[in-house]
């Protein structure tokens, strides 16, 4: 099935079996292997990408359902020469060990910070209150991204630092 997805600013046309997930389209068809396949069931968050600016699990989405959508993967976030502030913060704080979850953590952080600045609720914030970027708020809002090396304290520190730089 013919599908065109705008990936990291570039229109990419594909002819896909409808079974192909967005994650497999990115990794196997477009060779963008930054997005990782961990659990392939929406439980680990390693496959997190931004679709039209919103973070989702790319493993639980069919590529053919994204015809015309704008997808941002870790490859579109920054380059070794021009790191995104969140990437710099993850390096500075050593916010990983094996690094497998890191692309998902970083894409998720981008989505999370934009949700937070839009005032989106979470269970850490009562429905009437404006959320602030506390440690507890970061942990709750990033709970869809698992780090099996358990670099969580460094990830929280990196996100707080990056948010200051990006403010």
């Amino acid at each position: 099935m013919k599908t065109t997805i705008h990936v990291n600013g570039e229109a990419r046309s594909l002819d896909l079996d409808p079974r192909t997930t967005l994650l497999d389209a990115l990794r196997e068809h477009l060779k963008l292997t930054g997005s990782k396949k961990g659990c392939d069931h929406g439980q680990c968050g390693a496959c997190t990408v931004l679709v039209n600016g919103v973070r989702i699990n790319s493993c639980l989405s069919l590529a053919v359902m994204h015809d015309g959508d704008a997808v941002t993967t870790i490859e579109g976030v920054g380059t070794p020469e021009h790191l995104h502030p969140i990437q710099t913060a993850f390096l500075t704080h050593d916010a990983y060990q094996c690094g497998y979850c890191t692309p998902g953590q970083i894409c998720s952080t981008i989505g999370m910070l934009s949700e937070l600045s839009a005032g989106a609720p979470s269970q850490e914030t009562p429905p009437g209150a404006a959320p602030v970027l506390s440690d507890a708020e970061i942990r709750e809002r990033m709970s869809g991204n698992i780090c099996r090396c358990s670099a969580y304290p460094q990830i929280v520190a990196a996100i707080k630092d990056a948010a200051k730089v990006m403010a």
């Binding site: 968050g45 989702i56 699990n57 639980l60 609720p121 979470s122 429905p127 709970s143 869809g144």
Partner: peptide
Amino acid sequence: LSQAIVAGGSPQLRNK
């Protein structure tokens, strides 16, 4: 309703 929704799944799942 808002509280119940944010108690379920993960942010990525709720976005989708």
